[in-house]
């Protein structure tokens, strides 16, 4: 949400400057990512780090508190209204297999794929990624092995925020709209997708995200036919949650999540 709003502001500022569209987008993206990284880092420092050893629900409450704060700050800054995304992007339409997609959507898919590949490489191929996985597995042991877990956790917040910023920009570009409240449902869906796939697994998150999106759109489209008109398309959220619940009943740790066996 912040990402989208910052990017939007930058784009609006630069739109009149006559710079090429490509540059404007890049600058906006950089600004959005930078702001989100800073915000993410600050939140982690202020609201999470002091609670690392607190009872496990304490961080959840601060997370809720922080999201309320951010949302309302954004509302104070950008107001309650919807902001239209400036139509600076070329929107040529292509037809593939009978479906119409815009060049923008192609770009979104490409960027998403690129980011995911980058993330996988980061997590699995670099020293930093190894430290991250160690920290998530067992923080005290990771610390004994010389990993600076504070630094690592800060860093994950920064990366996560940057990804969210890019995603926010893409969402608002796709729907040509941005709003102070847009982040809430997205955050929820993101969490759902991560759980669906299995927490702590990038491939799982990707799979969960794709599945959730497909289920929602297809569900919304076909649910009426499936139930003989009893349930309409406004049940699309139910469909997604229903699938999620079913998946978790049979695979309690997500589709590709590792089986957490009960050890005695």
């Amino acid at each position: 949400m912040i990402g989208a709003m910052v990017a939007l502001t930058v784009i609006k500022l630069l739109a009149a400057s006559g710079l090429p569209v490509f540059v404007i987008i890049l600058v906006a993206l950089a600004a959005a990512a930078a702001v989100c990284m800073a915000v993410g880092y600050t939140i982690e420092r202020i609201a999470y780090r002091p609670l690392r050893r607190a009872p496990k629900l304490a961080p959840l409450i601060t997370a809720i508190g922080v999201s309320i704060i951010l949302q309302n700050l954004a509302m104070l800054i950008w107001g309650r209204n919807y902001h239209a995304f400036p139509p600076i992007l070329p929107t040529s339409q292509h037809e593939i297999f009978g479906a119409t997609i815009t060049s923008l959507q192609v770009a979104i898919v490409l960027i998403a794929a690129l980011m995911m590949t980058g993330l996988i490489i980061l997590i699995h191929r670099t020293r930093l990624g190894r430290a991250m996985r160690a920290t998530s597995e067992n923080p005290p042991i990771a610390q004994l092995m010389g990993v600076n877990i504070n630094q690592i956790i800060s860093f994950t917040f920064i990366i996560g925020s940057a990804l969210a910023a890019v995603a926010g920009l893409m969402v608002s570009a796709n729907y040509s709209i941005a709003h102070y409240y847009m982040g809430f449902m997205l955050g929820l869906k993101a969490f759902t997708a991560a759980v669906l796939g299995g927490i702590g697994n990038i491939a799982g998150a990707v799979l969960g995200g794709i599945l959730l999106g497909l289920i929602e759109s297809l569900g919304a489209g076909y649910i009426g036919d499936l139930t003989g008109g009893f349930l309409g398309s406004h049940y699309q959220d139910i469909f997604a949650f229903f699938v999620l619940i079913c998946v978790l009943i049979f695979r309690p740790s997500g589709l590709v999540g590792e089986k957490v066996s009960e050890r005695a």
Binding site: P50, P55, I68, N72
Partner: peptide, 25 residues
């Protein structure tokens, strides 16, 4: 100066964070 509704929620969110920071249990 500021939208009272937003300000109210802002303070509320702040209260949640502050309480949890100082009294995590």
């Amino acid at each position: 100066l500021l939208d009272p509704e937003a300000l109210r929620m802002l303070l509320f969110g702040l209260a949640l964070v502050v309480v949890m920071l100082y009294r995590p249990a």
